[in-house]
Design a protein around this nucleic acid. Structure first.
Length: 353
RNA sequence: GGGGAUGUCGCCAAGUGGUAAGGCAACGGACUUUGACUCCGUCACUCGUAGGUUCAAAUCCUGCCAUCCCUG
């Protein structure tokens, strides 16, 4: 009987994933990685231990909690803060999945002599004809989570099971309810798991003892001063709300200039771009992109967006340019660009410059 | 000192005698394993101020106040 370690977040998805695996005959061990604990002792939304333990009890599987607070701090929190201070908008969940969740689950799988690790993500792991592993978009595209998984390694994928790939949220809740799982009605997870009250800027200030970039100017593309901003950590490219500036028509953040401490505002139509470059690539469904070769694919620039047709070309050892068939709105430095084939399999991805 | 202009929600701004449009911003909610976007909803019993005319005024008249411009 194959043994599998499942990461239980305390939410309904991972609970049902565990239940399904057990029903399929796996020897299932539940694990929660404690990644974050706020000052008042409450747990983050990615690791609610009481709920996870209760879930494991109901399903009837062994359960362990592993601390990885320092790992999470080092690999997720620190880079997250550093990015914002430099005017970049990171994807903490992308980093966390590869560097913390999968890394640690695999480690403990080895220690506990498990064959696989599993999670409650809405996506599936597939092995392509070229021998490579990749993640494929969930059947119900609304819940698809492949965007957050594109940085996983081949080794990680080769040992990963994701039982929820073809399920809808409703089906998952229904299964949880029938099985008497206590978190069946729990709301979906959302927002950054470690920042309380969804106040990431406040979180950064607190973590850095207030040593964040100071107030500065809002400027237009010609450099004319339009007003004052609260400090660049409060903004992200494409942002409209929270600017506190009334020009009679909506304006959006086009660029954050960390070097001059300026935030560039433009009209909506000036937010579009056809060419986007990115670096720090991770290859998944393909091994690499050759020089002079063009990769035709669909590219997703943010989590909740549809992938758009584009052509990707190599620019350097770890750098590509993406040329979209039609202009895309507000490509944002620090966010990920994920390349999909027409079947919804991830081919590769990188970080927007 | 004299002349001119303007004062309507945080900003811009309709309204010119019939009982306060709209845009922006803001706030609330929905959506969401990142940040955003988007969507929905809320937002002046009151029109610089004090009087007057009128059945009725932000809209007409008078005084005052404030701001801006021109001229000395």
């Amino acid at each position: 009987m194959a043994r599998v370690i499942i990461g239980l977040s305390g939410g309904v998805d991972s609970a049902v994933a565990a239940l399904l695996l057990k029903e399929q005959g796996y020897d299932v061990i539940g694990v929660t990685l404690r990644t974050w604990q706020s000052d008042d002792g409450s747990e983050s939304r990615c690791c609610e231990i009481d709920d996870a333990r209760a879930t494991a009890d109901v399903i009837g599987i062994p359960y362990h909690v592993f601390n990885c607070l320092s790992d999470f701090d080092e690999k997720v929190i620190k880079p997250f803060i550093d990015d914002y201070i430099h005017g970049i908008t990171p994807n903490p969940c992308v980093v966390c999945n590869r560097e913390v969740k999968w890394e640690r689950l695999l480690y403990h799988a080895n220690v506990l002599q498990a064959d696989f690790i599993a999670t409650g993500h809405y996506a599936s792991v597939v092995k392509l004809n070229n021998g490579r592993y990749t993640v494929k978009q969930a059947s119900h595209i609304e819940k698809d989570q492949t965007y957050m998984l594109y940085r996983l390694s081949q080794e990680q994928l080769s040992r990963t099971l994701m039982p929820l790939s073809d399920m809808t949220k409703e089906e998952v809740r229904e299964i949880a309810k029938k099985a008497g799982i206590p978190v069946a009605g729990k709301p979906d997870s959302q927002e950054i798991c470690f920042a309380e009250d969804d106040d990431y800027a406040g979180f950064i200030k607190q973590q850095t003892d207030g040593k964040v970039p100071p107030e500065g100017n809002f400027v237009d593309e010609s450099g004319n001063v339009l007003g004052r901003h609260k400090g660049i950590i409060h903004y992200t490219v494409g942002q409209r709300k929270g600017l506190g500036i009334a020009l009679g028509h909506p304006v959006f953040v086009k660029e954050i200039k960390a070097d001059t401490n300026e935030v560039v505002l433009v009209d909506e139509e000036d937010l579009y771009a056809t060419r986007v470059t990115c670096r720090s690539l991770n290859f998944m469904g393909i091994e690499k992109i050759n020089a002079c070769e063009e990769l035709t694919c669909n590219v997703k620039l943010r989590y909740r967006h549809k992938a758009q047709p584009a052509t990707v070309r190599l620019l350097g050892p770890d750098r590509v340019e993406i040329l979209f068939d039609t202009p895309v709105k507000a490509p944002t430095p620090g966010q990920s660009a994920v390349f999909y084939d027409d079947d919804g399999c991830v081919l590769a991805g990188g970080i927007i410059e």
